[in-house]
Every structure is written in C-alpha cells, then in structure tokens.
Write a protein that binds this DNA or RNA. Structure first.
Lengths: 200, 200
DNA sequence: CCCCTTTTGTTCTATATGTGTTCTATTATA
DNA sequence: TATAATAGAACACATATAGAACAAAAGGGG
C-alpha cells in the first residue's frame, strides 16, 4: 500500500496533479499516453496501477471513467493553528481545528490559518479577530506581509523589508515604530495570502 | 445510487449545466439529442437515467420536459453580483458568476457577494478590491454596516444610524463626512456579514 | 366527455466502439 | 545482475449508439 514511488511514478503523479484542470474530463489512458509522450498504454497502466496501490489515484476496476486522483476531502479545509499577536509566540489552539477556505484565498502550496490578536496591522485593514491565511514559506520578497519568528520564540505579523545586514519589520499602525533586527534573528514562517472576517 | 459517472455521462452533465440557461423550458429528450448530436433518444435516456441515479438530475417519472438539474444547494457558492462603490449604482458583472464562501462568513439567510471599489470604509478595514458577503435584508440595526440604496439609484456601503426623522450614513474615512438623509430616501438592501481579501 | 392524433418518455434488442487489462519481449539504468 | 521503463499485441468487457416498438401524457375537435 504505502510503497514508495519510483521516479517515473512520481513524475506521472505530478503531471496528473498539475494538469487535472487542463483535462475537460478525467483522462483516458490513451490521452495520458499522448500527453506524456508514451506510445504504449499497457506500460502506462502498470504505472497508474502503482499509484492506485499507493492510494493516490482512484482505483478503476475495469470502469471506463478515466484516471482520477483521489479526492482529498479535506481539500478546502486548512488547519487553524492558533492566534498570532505581535510579540508573543503563536498561541496554539487546544484542539486540532480546521477551517474551510475558498480557493480564491489560498495557494497551491501548503497553507494554514491564524487568528489575529491586536492592532499592529490595522492600517493595512487587518483587524483584531480576523482570520488570515498564510502560505508556508521560509523566504519572502520585500513588501510581503509575513509571519516572522524573532529569536525563535516571538511570532509577529508584519510587512518585511530585507536590506543587506538588516531586516526591518514594519507595522501598519502609526502609533508603532518599525523594528530593526540583524538577519540571523529573524526567520520567515510564511507569507500572507488571504484574509477573512466575520461580522457576527 | 452514488456511482461515479462515466466519461460520457460527465460530458452530458456538463452540457446540461452550461446550457440550462439556453433552454426556455427544460429540454425534451429529442431537443437534447439534436443539441448533443445524437440520433437516438433511447440511448440518451439511458444516460440521463444514470445521472438521475447519481442524484444530479431530478427524476422524471414520465413527466414531459423533465430533464432538470437537481438544485445545487450544497455548493456553498454565492452569486457575485458586481461592484459597489460609494455613490454609484451597483455595477453588475456581465456573466452570472458565483464564488465560494465558507459557512463562517455567511448566514443561513440569502446572501450575495460584492466587490468593493473605493476607500470610503478604509478605517473599518474594508479596502478597495475586497469581497464582501451581504445578507439580503430590508432592515438594519444602528451600527450595522449596510448596503444602502439612495433615491433608488445610488448604492453605497456605509455604517448606518437611524434616528427619528433622519438616517445618517457614516463612512469610515476621516476625509469624508457622514451623509444625512430623510428616511424615505434610503432603503436598506442588506447588511455586511463577511469579508474576504486575497493578496495575490 | 370521448376518440383520435401528436408529442414525448420508456424499454428493448442488436451492434459498434472505446477503454482498461494482461501478456511478452526489449531496452535502458543503476 | 536486478530493477525499472517501454513498446506492442491480444484480449475482455464496459459503454455508447441506433433503431424500433411501446406507454403515458397533452391537446383538439366533435
């Protein structure tokens, strides 16, 4: 079942994940063959079968309905990790919670959700209580709003500016000042990609 | 039962979803045949029956013109009506679009989605480009943020204050002033219940 | 209201095509 | 040498289609 994939099997699975939107309908073996540049569906079938055994592709027991990836029923739910407030570690939520997030507010890479505490980003329209969707990353571009870890303990949500020899974290609150750190004290944990607010 | 669809059944279902607006009434089997390029309604009937078994098409027990899709109540998708900017009518979007909204950001009553244009509510964290979820209503409580229609033409998003003999619409922008109207000039179209923002 | 016709859905059968499956043989790759 | 990847053929059977015949509803004219 949980056998590790060969290199080619990995390629094929990646191809399916990337292109399953390009196919109008689940692709047949023949279609996949020409898309992949193969000329024998028999060979492909063997590979697909390995993916089925690995639990990545829906088993097709003689059915003629195309090659479908297994539906990740959690697909639109992301883990809600806890609260983030400037200057404190992320306060984990007790239970392992998940929260549904529409595709529009997330990316294809791994994401998670935090709830905002405090007003440090209020002028960018991020208010106390908002849910933010964060893409897990360890690098950011200047101007991104990031979840940054300072000295390995304090987590904060700020707009980042990376200069040679210095990292500046800008709050969006005129009553607060930018914070300056040496680069080795700051690690990026993710970048802000989406935001949700409920008014009830 | 809940069997997965064959390829052709998938196609036919897609066709129905795409074109159910093109048909004045639910189509007859013969109409569908010619639209799909088939010449045997007997064959089509078998396919339709499969869709009925899958729960995607309402069962047509000898009814005429009985091919209608089952109401898609599950999808958690709301209609995206268009753009709202202070002082102009809601600019309708061309296509009838829908957008997925998690339960957290909506209510049990009918809701719709608008995209915000302008900065009139910026200090409440509602920025240009944000998607807002509006619950359809004709009454509001003081302090609610509402979609209000002024003189039946201009739509605007503001915080409402209803006094005897007067309605005040408060922007959240210190460069703008509250607007005063007599109650008969203002009708509430809905109240803000959720908000979404994408950063990419 | 009844009878007839027309339309439209339902049920068959027969046939053609498509599509997954199973082989074996051959070639790369480490 | 062992493992993986490929081609190609042959096969089995699920699915798609046409066509005919039948049944149920709708409508119309007397």
């Amino acid at each position: 079942m949980n056998r590790s994939l060969t290199r080619r099997q990995h390629e094929i699975y990646d191809f399916l994940s990337r292109h399953n939107d390009d196919f109008e309908h689940p692709p047949t073996l023949d279609e996949l063959c020409s898309a992949l540049g193969l000329s024998s569906k028999g060979s492909l079938h063997k590979q697909i079968q390995a993916l089925v055994d690995a639990g990545l592709v829906e088993p097709m027991n003689n059915q003629r309905r195309g090659v479908r990836l297994v539906r990740d029923e959690e697909s639109s739910a992301l883990p809600l990790l806890g609260y983030i407030a400037a200057g404190q570690p992320i306060e984990a939520v007790e239970q392992r919670e998940t929260i549904r997030v529409p595709e529009l507010l997330r990316t294809d890479r791994p994401c998670y959700v935090l709830q905002v505490r405090g007003d440090s980003m209020i002028e960018d329209g991020i208010l106390d209580g908002d849910h933010i969707i964060v893409e897990q990353r360890d690098q950011a571009r200047n101007g991104d709003i990031v979840v940054a870890l300072i000295d390995g303990t304090e987590a904060t949500l700020k707009r980042i500016e990376q200069k040679p020899g210095e990292v500046v974290l800008h709050p969006a609150n005129s009553r607060m000042s930018p914070m300056h750190f040496s680069p080795d004290r700051v690690t990026v944990q993710g970048i802000l990609v989406g935001q949700m607010r409920s008014y009830h």
